[in-house]
């Protein structure tokens, strides 16, 4: 599932993310990402692990062009994202769901309004302003909130929720976009261990249910091994491991993070 395979891709009906030769330099000549290529397709969950500052967040923000890549190409379900600008880019971003470390909810809006934020790309601003969402979208939002156990909180303000509940709202906001790929940037780093496990379970369950490829930046190797079907190890801006979590050896981890003292 590496670059050699993705070179000969045929159009497929599966939802997919394909990254080819992605390079990002904040300072010319000092790449933070060097030639990243991988593909994720259909029902799969990919953990991206690596030390802080190695470009994990930059990598997933290059996918939806929140950070423009220096070179290389990103395809979401075979649509080239990298060459898009303006309203075309906006339309393409609707296909990319994103979950954040600090949830990034609008604290003063209600839970329901925060979930429906995921539909803002589909409706005109004046309709959004008047809260005139299509009835079936509102119904879906209610169903989604019900399925993640937050139905009773729908009309409460987001800042009245606990961390785990907020992250659930963040996930619902991404899922209601009906994305073709789900990106999660350290979704559990602001949460306690028990809640982290629950959030990982929810992310994996929702993505599998809907066959949305899930890409998770995560620094907790144990969580990554437990919940994902594939691990990509980043070190110094390049991929140094790409394979199933079971095969991830201490040697690999040493290469990814450096040093051995932290391994037991």
């Amino acid at each position: 599932m590496t670059s050699d395979q993705s070179a000969s891709t045929r159009p497929s009906s599966l939802r997919s993310l394909r990254i080819e030769n992605l390079v990002k330099e904040y300072v010319p000549g000092k790449p933070i990402l060097r030639n990243i290529s991988f593909k994720a397709e259909g029902k799969c969950s990919v953990a991206i692990i690596g030390p802080s500052g190695t470009g994990k967040s930059t990598l997933i923000r290059c996918v939806n062009k929140l950070i423009p890549p220096t070179s290389g190409t990103v395809f979401v379900s075979d649509e080239n994202i990298t060459r898009l600008h303006g309203s075309e880019l906006r339309k393409a971003r609707r296909k990319i769901g994103m979950v954040f470390q600090e949830f990034n909810l609008v604290e003063r809006l209600s839970v329901m309004e925060n979930v429906l934020c995921g539909r803002l790309g589909y409706i005109a601003p004046w309709r959004a302003w008047l809260r005139k969402y299509p009835g079936e979208e509102v119904d879906r939002a209610f169903e989604l909130l019900d399925s993640i156990g937050l139905l009773d909180f729908a009309r409460q303000r987001a800042d009245s929720l606990s961390g785990g509940q907020r992250q659930r709202v963040g996930i619902a906001r991404a899922i209601i976009q009906e994305p073709h790929v789900l990106l999660a940037d350290e979704p559990t780093s602001s949460l306690d261990p028990k809640t982290s496990v629950e959030i990982m379970e929810l992310l994996v369950a929702l993505s599998e249910e809907r066959s949305i490829p899930l890409i998770i930046n995560i620094h907790d190797v144990e969580l990554a091994k437990r919940f994902t079907t594939r691990v990509i190890g980043l070190s110094k801006g390049g991929i140094v491991y790409d394979g199933p979590p079971a095969d991830l050896s201490n040697e690999n981890l040493k290469e990814i993070y450096g040093g051995t003292d932290w391994l037991q």
Partner: peptide, 24 residues
Amino acid sequence: KPVEALRAAGAPFISVIIYAVFPQ
């Protein structure tokens, strides 16, 4: 942070202002 989230969801600029900036 909410501005980033809404841009990532493909919201038009005006909607970002209405939903992520104005409530704050």
